[in-house]
Computed example of a mutant assay.
Amino acid sequence: MSYVIVGSCVNDAVCTEVCPVDCIQPSPEARDFAHAEMLYIDPDACVGCNACAEACPVNAIYRIDQLPAQWAAYPEINAAFFRQGAKREPA
């Protein structure tokens, strides 16, 4: 089951450090990291390990099947980030 990052993300990148498959972008090393409003999880690459959700200091990461209604648009927002040409950069 994939995870999703929602609008309460503060872009502190601790989740990128614990992700075993580097599916959270942009990574701190990416050119656009400093300007990113939030981070995004690639739904095709996520292995559902829960490490990111446990590490998130602001509880901005949810399992898709446990996503509160107020964040219902965020699975598509995360997926669209990667469809629009975001490149996975190693952490």
Rank of each mutant, 00 (worst) to 15 (best):
M1Q: 14
S2V: 13
Y3D: 04
Y3R: 04
I5Y: 06
I5D: 00
V6F: 03
V6Q: 01
G7I: 06
G7M: 07
S8A: 15
C9T: 10
N11M: 10
D12T: 10
D12F: 03
D12Q: 06
D12Y: 05
A13Q: 07
V14W: 01
C15I: 01
T16M: 02
T16W: 01
T16G: 00
T16N: 05
E17Q: 15
C19F: 00
C19N: 02
C19Q: 03
P20T: 07
P20Q: 04
V21F: 02
D22F: 05
D22Q: 01
I24N: 04
I24D: 04
I24V: 05
I24Y: 00
I24H: 00
Q25R: 06
Q25I: 06
Q25P: 02
Q25S: 07
P26R: 00
S27V: 14
S27N: 13
S27H: 15
P28W: 02
E29P: 10
E29N: 13
A30C: 09
R31G: 06
R31Y: 09
R31Q: 14
R31A: 13
D32L: 09
H35K: 14
H35L: 12
H35F: 15
A36P: 09
A36Q: 08
A36C: 08
E37H: 15
E37T: 14
E37S: 15
M38R: 15
L39Y: 09
L39E: 07
Y40T: 10
Y40W: 13
Y40G: 07
I41V: 12
D42E: 04
D42Q: 01
P43L: 11
D44K: 13
A45K: 14
C46P: 04
V47Q: 14
C49A: 10
A51V: 03
A51D: 15
A51G: 12
C52H: 05
A53T: 03
A53Q: 08
E54D: 09
A55Y: 12
A55N: 08
P57K: 09
P57H: 10
P57D: 04
P57Q: 02
V58F: 02
V58G: 00
N59S: 14
I61W: 01
I61A: 04
Y62P: 06
R63N: 00
R63V: 00
D65S: 14
D65M: 02
Q66P: 03
L67Q: 03
L67C: 07
L67Y: 05
L67E: 08
P68K: 11
P68M: 07
A69K: 13
Q70Y: 05
Q70P: 11
Q70R: 12
W71C: 11
W71D: 12
W71V: 13
A72Q: 13
Y74N: 05
P75T: 09
P75L: 11
P75E: 06
I77C: 03
I77F: 09
I77N: 11
N78I: 01
A79H: 10
A79V: 08
A79T: 11
A80S: 10
A80N: 10
F81A: 03
F82V: 08
R83S: 09
R83W: 02
Q84L: 15
Q84D: 14
G85L: 01
G85F: 03
K87G: 03
K87F: 12
K87L: 08
E89I: 14
E89N: 10
E89R: 05
E89T: 13
E89A: 12
E89M: 07
P90M: 07
